[in-house]
């Protein structure tokens, strides 16, 4: 399926180069900063993306953030559930990441 399902279905390889790993680190900090409540941290994260990756990356990363601000609410407000097969298949990674502790896991 698409969007949130694709987020878990798509194989996300480990970055194979130092540059790719650095980019992932920048993206990780950007997401953490823009969902937080520290405007200075968010400004710094935007500046880092623009300086290190380019202004197009800022736009395209913010667009992906926007998409999942949309899709997470869609899933949670419509009570979207995983099939039993997917629940079973993801048991170990859920435990590893602590996903069962999310309030939205109570369904």
């Amino acid at each position: 399926m698409m969007m949130l399902r694709a987020s878990t279905d798509a194989a996300i390889p480990n970055p194979s180069t130092d540059a790719a790993a650095a980019a992932r680190s920048i993206l990780e900090e950007f997401v953490a900063a823009v969902v937080g409540d520290d405007p200075d941290r968010a400004d710094a994260a935007r500046a880092t993306i623009v300086d290190q990756l380019g202004s197009d990356w800022l736009i395209d990363t913010a667009a992906v953030v926007a998409n999942f601000e949309m899709m997470t609410r869609l899933a949670d407000a419509t009570g979207a559930c995983l099939t039993p097969g997917r629940i079973e298949a993801a048991a170990s990674i859920r435990a590893q990441l602590g996903l069962d502790a999310f309030p939205s896991a109570r369904r």
Partner: peptide, 16 residues
Amino acid sequence: MEFVAARLSAARECFY
């Protein structure tokens, strides 16, 4: 993109 999606979804505590 999937990395950003996963980080955002985790920040929003979206189990799905």
